[in-house]
Design a protein around this nucleic acid. Sequence first.
DNA 1: TACAGTAGAGAACGATCGTTCTCACCGCAA
DNA 2: TTGCGGTGAGAACGATCGTTCTCTACTGTA
Lengths: 194, 194
Amino acid sequence: MTSTAAEPAALEPRERVVTAAAELFYARGIQAVGMDEVRGAAGVSLKRLYAEFPGKEQLVLAVLDWRREQWETGLARAVEQADEPRARLLAVFDFLEDWFADDSFRGCGFINAFGELGATSPSVAAATRAHKQAFQDYVARLARDAGADETLGAQLALLAEGAQTTAAIAGCGDSAEVAHRAAEVLIDAALAQR
Amino acid sequence: MTSTAAEPAALEPRERVVTAAAELFYARGIQAVGMDEVRGAAGVSLKRLYAEFPGKEQLVLAVLDWRREQWETGLARAVEQADEPRARLLAVFDFLEDWFADDSFRGCGFINAFGELGATSPSVAAATRAHKQAFQDYVARLARDAGADETLGAQLALLAEGAQTTAAIAGCGDSAEVAHRAAEVLIDAALAQR
DNA sequence: TACAGTAGAGAACGATCGTTCTCACCGCAA
DNA sequence: TTGCGGTGAGAACGATCGTTCTCTACTGTA
């Protein structure tokens, strides 16, 4: 999922900047990484960097958008590997489990960015809100496909969010498995209720 | 003019600094608030501020410790209002619901601090980890008192964490109620299993 | 009154960072 | 060749911030 720092020359400068900035921001925090370091990691000049992004905020938003795209395609790929509606709901938590096992895992980049800049940057707050809303909608759709009502989707989304923060802070314990088992209970209860 | 010790309403300088810093850090982020602004809000001199805390990091840690204390006493008070073990478990989510309704609610201060400084400040990361671990232990104890096994506590803790981040980002929807209903399902399932 | 000690107010310092500017260099058309 | 538009490398600028230093006012004591 991550691209290494040494980018092949085939990538466009803009994409090199976004991927390098995404990696740096995620690993160390946004405010802890200066534009000059992004420039060095991306192998572009400051002039080019500011030609692509008029300011750091625009770069941050581009990184968040790139991360959202990565998240959505990865999640969809995991879900599509399952055929049955119930298994597709649980695939969300398998996806999380794989993610948490990654060495570079350091929590949800949106939650981190929101904690860091959400109070001072309305656009970062809006991007985070949109991303989380899309996730909730996606899970709600999977729940509806499984024959449950909207509530189940919201409940499973809460579990997924809690697993992400807990895995990040506790240093990647077994949050995904715990959430997975809780999800099974909630799904079965929701389906039995009908 | 400084307030004399005879005035009952005046807090000690150190406590004024901690509460003022806690409010500012929580509302706007830690790095967005300078020491000078903390000094102004607390009504102390820079000299006094640095006499109490040798650096900003120590102040941040003191704020986190104060916040942990506030959280623990508030949570314990909510839980103790319930008599039955099951109601005591659910009181955790009532506590969250009250908190989310606060106008100044902006998510869990520890999660925000972790997202902002966890990667660069080991002591902030450790304080966050300790706080979340203590919460998990507390819920696990409540679950054990209710006659369920350890797993239920971990599951409910995940729900609580997810409700906090979701309420913060979505702007305080009904996360607490959703988590509350999910908790009821999980508790009943855990108790029926025995 | 003189003096020592303390504390407040805020200037000052050094470092960092986002952003802009300078300047040398390269490819290329006339 | 000459001129020119564009680019890279990096110096420079202005602002912010954590931290320290200076100066002044005040308090208590002899």
